[in-house]
Amino acid sequence: MQIGELARLTRTTPRALRLYEARGLLGPVPRRGRYRHYHAGHAAQVRLVRQALALGLRMADLARLPQHTGADALAQAAALLQARRAQVQRELQRLRAQDDALAALEHALLHCPEADPTGKRPLALDCAPA
């Protein structure tokens, strides 16, 4: 199939496909004259690349992975996924702390007698939760 057909099939653009190819994410793409000729394996690879990018992996990280599917390649891919999961866990902790701080502020605004919505007195954030 040609690039337009692969783009439609994978719901991406020819420009993105050229970029993936230039970064080495699709493996070898045979040509006939000026035209690239893709096969079903390329479509699967494009879907995998798009999924990885949507999950926050970087194209540079994906490009460093070996193109073969041996045990070493799978171990490298697993390590990349573990690193991304660790990043997500750190972000979740940061967001939980932010949510706790927002909840404390909301409580202070709604339930603390010292809270002054007019802004004439400082807001007391240290009142005890109800």
Rank of each mutant, 00 (worst) to 15 (best):
T12N: 10
M59V: 15
A78I: 01
I3S: 10
A86Q: 12
R34F: 01
A7I: 12
R84V: 08
V88A: 10
D99H: 14
R64A: 14
A108Q: 03
P113A: 15
L125H: 03
Q93A: 15
A43K: 01
L81I: 11
A124M: 08
L55H: 13
R18I: 06
P30N: 02
D61H: 07
L6Q: 05
T118W: 00
Y38A: 07
A43M: 04
H39K: 11
A75Y: 02
L62W: 02
R15Q: 14
R18K: 04
L6H: 00
R34S: 12
A78Q: 12
Q67N: 07
P14T: 15
G27E: 05
L19S: 04
L62C: 04
A101L: 11
R58M: 11
Q67R: 12
T12I: 07
R15Y: 11
R31S: 02
T13Q: 11
L57D: 05
E21F: 05
L123G: 08
P113D: 14
L19R: 08
Q76K: 12
L26Q: 01
A79M: 05
A101G: 03
H39R: 15
L110Y: 07
L123K: 01
H37W: 09
D61E: 15
P113E: 14
T69K: 04
A44G: 12
G119Q: 02
Q98F: 13
V49N: 00
G56S: 06
G27F: 04
A97W: 06
A54Q: 10
R50G: 08
Y20V: 06
A54N: 02
L123E: 04
V46F: 05
T10R: 08
Q82K: 11
G24K: 02
H39L: 13
E114H: 15
L9N: 07
D72T: 11
R11E: 15
L110E: 13
V29S: 00
L55P: 03
A128H: 10
G41S: 05
V46M: 04
G4R: 12
L65I: 05
L110S: 13
A77M: 07
L53W: 01
A128L: 13
